[in-house]
Structures are given as C-alpha cells and as structure tokens.
Amino acid sequence: MLRLDGIDAGYGAVRVLRGLTLSVAAGEVLCVMGRNGAGKSTMLKTIMGQVRATAGTIDLDGTRIDPLPAHEVPRHGIGYVPQGRRLFGDLTVAENIEIGLMTRARDARVRDKVLDLFPRLRERMGQISRTLSGGEQQMLAIARALCLEPKVLLLDEPTEGLQPSMIALIRDTVVALKSTGVATVLVEQRVDAALSVADRIAFMTGGSVAETVPAAGLHPNAAHFAAYVGV
C-alpha cells in the first residue's frame, strides 16, 4: 500500500532522515518506535509532503507521491493525526469535521459514520475545539482524519497524555479500521499499547529503521525495547 524507499529528509541543512525504508500493507498496523528525536514525526511529515524528501521515493498504490505538493497528498487517501493533535483550535468541532470532509469531498453520510465512533463529539458539535478536554481533542483529531475515508492512516503518538479508557478507545478504533483494510502507521512510545495492536514494529534510530520485527514474536521485556526505546 504505502512504501518509503531510501528517504533522506530534514530541515534546512540539518538532515534528520537518512536512507529510511519501510512499508505497510492494506489491513496492517505498523508501529514505529524510537527515542525522542529519532525522526518519527519527521518521517510522517515527509509522507505528508510538509518536509521534502531530498532522496528516495514514496509510493502509494503504485503512484509516487513524494513529488506532489503537500495539499495533494491527503487527496490520495492519506489521513494524518499529527503529534499534539494540531486541531484548528478557534474553530468549532463541526467546522474541524467539515474540513476533514472537504479533503476528498465526502458528504454527511461519512460524517455520521465517523461520529458513530465518537458519540461524545456529536454532543459537542458547536463547541470551540480548543476548549475540549485532552481526550475529546484527540477523538476530534482522529475523527477529522477519518472524514476523508483514508486508505492509509498516520497516527503520531495518539495516546500521549491520555487515561487508560481513552487509550482503549483509540486501540479499538484502530482495530476496527484494520478490519476494513486501512493501512495504519502508528507512532507509539508505550510498549503495551504498541503490542496490543501492532502487526509489525519498526524500530527507528538516527533517522532510519534499524529493525522491523513481527509483534507476535515480541515479549514486553524484549531487548529491542530497551535498546531502541529506552524502557
């Protein structure tokens, strides 16, 4: 579905990603783990075209998307939940949803389907999104991305700072999407959260993927986590 091959990227003269290669298939959940500053968020921004790749290719279903202007990338079916949520804070819940729907011209039917996943948002459509609780904000960030009916979903530390019941809700959502064939790239720092949904785990260090391991074979105490995540 989505494949990154030999990607170099960075900010100005600073190179962050070096020869990064990874891929995720339809209906697969790929977890990306690595220390702070390993380049996880930069990798997602590069997929979205916000950071330009200076070498390598990004391929979505046989189409190269790395040369596209940033606003055309989501139109190919990539939904993005950025780190720290990045809601349009001064806009209402309904308006944030509306922008998600506009991305690929989806209608009220899709909106209703998405809101069925997060009924708490439906009660708060008129609320300014900045004033939502942290958990509600994360629901809205995910709902906004689902409004474009993505083929590929990129989630950047969606469980950061949330209580267990919210983390469970996000996990259930990812599992439900997986069964519909969505390919998910999930950046996750918590070992338990990663192991509960991942098919494979990619360990990043120094801007590239050091190792990719099937999640089924990993124990929470595996040396990988100590080596690459520092837990």
């Binding site: 916000q50 202007p69 606003h71 950025p82 990045r86 349009f88 804070g89 922008i99 474009l148």
Partner: peptide, 16 residues
C-alpha cells in the same frame, strides 16, 4: 480561517 490558524495542517487536509 483554517489556513490562518495553521497552514501546515490546512495542507494536510487538502487546502491549497
């Protein structure tokens, strides 16, 4: 208004 608030995120939702 969305562009005013956050242009990178606006781009991530297809806004030119």
């Amino acid at each position: 208004r969305a562009t005013q608030i956050d242009r990178d995120t606006a781009r991530a939702f297809g806004i030119n």
